[in-house]
Design a protein around this nucleic acid. Sequence first.
DNA 1: GCCAACGTTGGC
DNA 2: GCCAACGTTGGC
Length: 160
Amino acid sequence: MPARPTHWLLKSEPHVFSFDDLWSAKKRTTMWDGVRNYQARNFMRDSMRPGDPILYYHSSCDVPGVVGLAEVASDPYPDPTQFDASSKYHDSGSDPNDPRWMLVDVRAVRRLPRVVTLADLKGERRLAKMAVVQKGSRLSVQPVTEAQWRIVLELAGVDG
DNA sequence: GCCAACGTTGGC
DNA sequence: GCCAACGTTGGC
């Protein structure tokens, strides 16, 4: 049985919530709410642990890519927006006694000295298996291997 | 803005 | 359980 994944990539659309937004948040931390994909939820619920390192990826923007590092900052807990009728993430089918959607808190750790663009990732043979470079990859919460993590940091100009 | 790829829904 | 229709994602 494979060990649980310990390193992650989170996608965010910067016009919605950028790495700068996270950096300027209280305690540089936010609830990673609104995830409504079961695979992504399962990673947060079943595998993420406080302290796990995160690559913070900007999608749907001029230059998609990894812009910063973050970390998991809580154990999993129910996403409160699923029970908020005024939220666009409201899910009337979720039972408060058995919540459908779980999340973790995410804390910004550092901005990267240079952005590792999607083009950079695609151009690095050693990253050919990374989920984010696969055609049609839409998963917003992805595991990253330790080897991939080190290579991305190398491309970013960060010492191991 | 386009559109391919993907996940979910719902009729049957 | 199949699969067409639909809505969303996300690079380009």
